[in-house]
Structure formats: structure tokens, C-alpha cells
């Protein structure tokens, strides 16, 4: 199956790239596990605070491990003319992108699962009360972020700039989800609440279903439409 081949390629290259592994695995997992452990030990309401902050750090995982990672991978392969070569194979354009998106989502989901277990063991953060909702929110949220990250590459002029270009997205997502405790004016909080990462955190933290589902559907559709402008080759 060709889609499976594209998926395997994305996965194989992900685990081979040591520098990228540090940025997209060690850093976000370190934050997602480290901050709750810290909270558990320094505050009196330890478990509650640790749980809250862990739910917020899901936005960090989604914006780094999914969004930044796929943007860096695709711009790199675009600029090295690997995507161009892939288009001479039997893969369709949709399969090339779907394979990469699926592989990025798998990596994110694996790291979220790992972090969930780690904070349970290290910071007594309870397992999610509704595991199905939790899993759905994480899988859909990361799929939407992967589509958006792929579409966002159209705005990134060169591969070396990919990480820098995704930085603002990471900051907005982290602040919006409360993973970075910065006081915000009300309107800013409302706006940041519209981010797909915020929708995932709302679903996980408050058990909301309908609003996050609509939010993710809207962002996912927008991302799929924006893929029309995906660039397969570097600008010249």
C-alpha cells in the first residue's frame, strides 16, 4: 500500500533525525512532565494544580510535536527537492501529505500517552475520567494541527526559517491554554480560546464536547482548503 509507504517514510525519517528529536520530543515532553511534577511539589493544592497545568501543556505538545515538527519536516523536504522526487513516484499528492500527517499524528499521540502515564506516576495526576473523550480530543486535535502545519509551510520562505516561523504559534497556543501563566485582558483570552489547541484543552479539562468538536471541524476544514496553496518546490 502506497499510503502506508508514505507513512513509514515519515516515521523512519522522524526517528533518524537526532537534532529534531531533541526539539520535538525531549523539550515538549520535558515541559509536559516537568511542570506538573514541579506544581505537585511546591503548592499546597498540589494535585489539582498539577492536573491543570498538565492539561494546559497538551497545547505545547500539539504546537511543537505536531505543528512545528510537520512544518520543519515538509519545508526541509521541499527545499531539498525530495517532495519533487516523491511526486515522480506512484504516490499522489494527497497520499504524500496524508502519509506525513498520519505519521506526525502517531508520534504526537504516542508522546501524549507517555506523558499521561509519566505524570500519573510522578505527580499523582489522575488518569482522565473519560478516556474516550480524552483520546478523541488528542487524536483529532493533533490531526487538525498537522493539517494546519502542512498548510502553513506555504508561508515559510526557506526551511531554515521553519522553526522561527512556528514560534509565534507555539507561544499563542501555550498562553491561550494557560500553560504559561500570563495575565491577559478578557478579549485576548476569548480570542486565544478560539485556537484549536484551546479547544483540545477545554475538552480534556472541562469535558466539553460540542464546542470543541465544532472548533476543530472548522479549523480542519480551513486547513484542508489552505492546502491548495501548498508549495511542492522551493521558490526560485
Amino acid at each position: 500500500m502506497t499510503l502506508a509507504a508514505a507513512y513509514n517514510l515519515g516515521t523512519r525519517l522522524f526517528w533518524r533525525d537526532k537534532a529534531m528529536l531533541f526539539a520535538s520530543v525531549v523539550t515538549p515532553v520535558g515541559l509536559a512532565v516537568g511542570m506538573p511534577v514541579l506544581m505537585r511539589n511546591v503548592t499546597s493544592e498540589g494535585v489539582t494544580a498539577a492536573t491543570e497545568i498538565f492539561q494546559g501543556t497538551l497545547a505545547i505538545l500539539l504546537s511543537i510535536t505536531t505543528f512545528m515538527n510537520i512544518a520543519v519536516a515538509l519545508t526541509g523536504r521541499r527545499d531539498q527537492l525530495v517532495l519533487k522526487r516523491l511526486r515522480t513516484s506512484r504516490l499522489t499528492d494527497a497520499q504524500i501529505l496524508a502519509g506525513q500527517i498520519a505519521s506526525t499524528v502517531t508520534q504526537t499521540v504516542a508522546l501524549v500517552a507517555l506523558s499521561t502515564v509519566a505524570v500519573r506516576v510522578l505527580a499523582d495526576v489522575p488518569f482522565p475520567p473519560d478516556p474516550v473523550l480524552y483520546a478523541a480530543a488528542v487524536v483529532l486535535g493533533s490531526a487538525v494541527m498537522a493539517v494546519l502545519g502542512a498548510a502553513y509551510t506555504a508561508a515559510i520562505p526557506r526551511a531554515e526559517l521553519a522553526a522561527a516561523y512556528t514560534m509565534p504559534v507555539f507561544l499563542l497556543a501555550a498562553v491561550g491554554a494557560g500553560a504559561m501563566p500570563i495575565p491577559l485582558p478578557g478579549w485576548a483570552g476569548t480570542l486565544l480560546g478560539l485556537l484549536p489547541t484551546s479547544a483540545v484543552v477545554d475538552a480534556v479539562a472541562r469535558g466539553d464536547v460540542l464546542a470543541p468538536a465544532l472548533n476543530l471541524a472548522a479549523w480542519g476544514a480551513a486547513g484542508l482548503v489552505a492546502l491548495r496553496w501548498f508549495r511542492w518546490e522551493p521558490r526560485r
Binding site: 513509514n8 527537492l81 525530495v82 515522480t88
Partner: peptide, 20 residues
């Protein structure tokens, strides 16, 4: 067109076989 520079020649051909 680009290659994956860290793959060997044989690995490159095998990887490509998956798309053929």
C-alpha cells in the same frame, strides 16, 4: 531531485520500491 543523504544506496532503492 533530492535524496535522503543518510540512507545508503540500497536503503534508498528499497524505500523507493515502497512507492512503486
Amino acid at each position: 531531485a533530492g535524496f535522503f543523504p543518510d540512507l545508503t544506496v540500497a536503503q534508498t532503492v528499497d524505500t523507493w520500491g515502497g512507492f512503486t
